[in-house]
């Protein structure tokens, strides 16, 4: 049992762990483009979050393009929004076969490793979690998401070969993230939520588990995030072996908590847009209280946003969320 997981399971209080870095980027007066391109700015944003919000841990930026970029994918880098992958890097057995597993000096990977290293070395008040994309979500970005969703049935050998290469890279990347000294890694695998439980098991869990087996230990916790799961592929998430699972707002947390083993930490799931970004102080308070009431009694529950908070969430809404958690714990 890892120290981080122990701390949660032994706590008498409900702990708060919203996934966020954008409030830090905005408070520094920086753009998203600057933060995802420069490890020092990225680190400063994490540091701001760690110092200004009473959360159990903080995270690096949930950027689901940095790994695809390392493979050679073309990235669109808007100034104020998280980057996205454009085009299709591979499309058949030949192109997948000749795809090289990149080394960790490609694209923005060195800047991400720098941000994690600086955060782990300098943020002492709370744990810092690294982040990376999950293997199926990465493969979808390299192959085209619609096409990979169909080709798990039409060209399964091609998809599996691509998943093996993605996993090899992610294992290497997560080992390097672990070496920076962070407490763990959040593996974001939203695309696997588009699959049935059986397909999620076959085309995501099998590969996520390889990463988990390679890096998870008492000092390094894997949190598997799948905000696409509406309740249909929770078994596949549990089977990954990750000690913590993070769920999106489309799922019923009470149902999830009944389904998950007591020693697996379950994290979620207030709507990052409807509650945090578009909500009022009153609606944030109400939604937070409602979720805490529904999940009361589950010691393995951690309250969080259902996904990474998007840019330009009112800081006051985050404060109201944290204050509500605190006051409900009394």
């Amino acid at each position: 049992m890892s120290n981080f997981i122990n701390q949660i399971l032994q706590s008498e209080k409900t702990l708060a762990f919203p996934i966020m870095t954008h409030p830090g980027i905005e408070a520094l007066g920086k753009t998203v483009r600057e933060a995802v391109s420069d490890g020092e700015i990225h680190y400063q944003a994490i540091k701001y979050i760690s110092e200004h919000f009473d959360t159990i841990a903080c995270t690096s930026i949930m950027d689901l393009t940095v790994e695809a970029e390392a493979f050679g994918a073309i990235i669109n880098l808007p100034e104020h929004e998280v980057p996205s992958v454009t085009g299709r890097l591979v499309n058949d057995l030949k192109s997948v076969g000749s795809l090289e597993v990149p080394t960790l000096d490609k694209g923005r990977i060195p800047q991400y490793l720098l941000a994690n290293k600086l955060a782990a070395e300098n943020i002492r008040s709370k744990p810092v979690f690294s982040g990376c994309i999950g293997p199926f979500s990465l493969a979808g970005r390299l192959y085209d998401m619609s096409e990979i969703l169909m080709d798990i049935y039409i060209e399964p050998d091609v998809v599996n070969q691509l998943l093996e290469k993605c996993t090899e890279f992610l294992v290497n990347y997560c080992r390097a993230l672990k070496a920076t000294g962070t407490t763990g890694v959040i593996i974001a695998e939203p695309a696997a939520g588009l699959l049935s439980d059986d397909d999620c098991m076959m085309y995501s869990t099998v590969f996520v588990k390889q990463i988990v087996d390679a890096v998870q230990d008492d000092n390094f916790t894997v949190i598997l995030h799948n905000c696409g799961n509406t309740g249909h592929c929770t078994n596949a998430m549990i089977a990954s072996g990750a000690r913590a699972l993070h769920f999106g707002n489309a799922i019923n947390m009470e149902d999830v908590l009944k389904q998950c083993p007591e020693n697996v930490v379950v994290i979620g799931n207030l709507n990052p847009v409807g509650v945090f970004k578009q909500g009022t102080e009153s609606s944030v308070r109400k939604a937070t209280q409602k979720l805490m009431t529904e999940t009361a009694g589950y010691k393995n529950f951690v309250i969080s946003s259902g996904c990474d908070l998007p840019p330009f969430v009112p800081e006051e809404n985050i404060r109201v969320f944290l204050e509500t958690v605190k006051s409900n714990n009394v």
């Binding site: 969703l149 169909m150 049935y153 049935s196 397909d199 509406t230």
Partner: peptide, 14 residues
């Protein structure tokens, strides 16, 4: 009704 998922739907559409 969650009886099929996006891959099956895409294949039907194709």
């Amino acid at each position: 009704e969650n009886k099929i998922f996006v891959p099956q739907m895409l294949l039907s559409a194709k």
